[in-house]
Amino acid sequence: MGSSDTVQGRDGLCFFGKVSATISHDVKNVLAIINEEAGLLQDLSLMAGQGMELDPERLVKLAVKIQNQVKRGDTIIKNMNKFAHSVDIAKCEVDFYDMTSLVIALFTRVASAKCVTVILKEGEIVTGKCDPFSAEMLIARCLEVSMDSAGKNHEISVEVFSKNSERVISVHGLRLEVSENDLQALEALSKNAGATVSVVPHDSLLEIIF
């Protein structure tokens, strides 16, 4: 086994399951859209066969929509693959910006359900060694806690940068107090990931430091 040895077994599995379920919903939606667009093409073709005038431009637009959904599906599957491989090696060199970007992409549906907009500020490559799966689990939980703190119809912004020898992922936009239970859960996850997490209420800020 790889890095899952270092993550408390069931919690790690639950996280893996949650992400997998989210991805499967996203893929289902893509397939459902392709199904309807293709069905529409079929309907229009049948109607054209019965003498209805068919605008070629309409067909082109439908084909482009299908291609766009295929691209969307491809991105979802690529992210899924990247995430699935994060359990391969217990400790390795990672790009924290890339990793944060992946977790935000995987949690788009969660953010949407919570009605919170997540913005990743442009940044540079920030490399360092960590257990990728544990780090992703920590980033994901921090994002969820931050979304809950920000509340419906608000925005959180995420920044990834180096400060001296530390790699920092900071989340701005927290509004409500983070519960003691959540803080304890973050502390346990951060230990697993070899990081520390601090919440600075008066700055509406949560920081993960590797």
Binding site: N29, A32, I33, E36, E37, G39, L40, D43, Q69
Partner: peptide, 16 residues
């Protein structure tokens, strides 16, 4: 909430 899905489905139902 998937605009492309719901609009295509509505159009297909209108054909029927």
């Amino acid at each position: 909430d998937e605009l492309e899905l719901v609009s295509a489905l509505a159009e297909r139902l209108s054909f029927r």
